[in-house]
């Protein structure tokens, strides 16, 4: 029961990543693509949480933390580059 519900949730998350990928392709300006990148990484962060649950290993959450921090840093860098503050 629980595993089936989590499986459906993972499928919905994959669909969300596909939609953000569409915006990443089409996005008329570079800022649009950066927003798409942000949402994409946050969605895949929760996907990592589900992978950790399915493989039953807590140490994968360390990787999730590194992933979240560094994607945040990447977004900030690109934004500061846009406003010529680097």
């Amino acid at each position: 029961m629980v595993n089936k519900i989590l499986f459906i949730a993972a499928l919905i998350m994959m669909l969300a990543i596909l939609l953000t990928l569409y915006r990443f392709f089409k996005g008329t300006t570079a800022a649009d693509r950066l927003v798409a990148f942000d949402v994409m990484t946050v969605s895949s962060l929760s996907l990592i949480g589900l992978i950790a649950k399915f493989s039953d290993r807590i140490i994968y959450l360390d990787v999730a933390m590194v992933y979240g921090l560094l994607s945040f840093l990447g977004v900030i860098i690109v934004a500061r580059y846009f406003e010529k503050g680097l």
Binding site: V66, L69, L73, I76, G85, L86
Partner: peptide, 16 residues
């Protein structure tokens, strides 16, 4: 290696 990279990115956040 990974820990050093994380420390360096923290300091880069401070530079920015």
């Amino acid at each position: 290696f990974q820990g050093g990279a994380i420390i360096a990115s923290g300091l880069v956040l401070m530079f920015i």
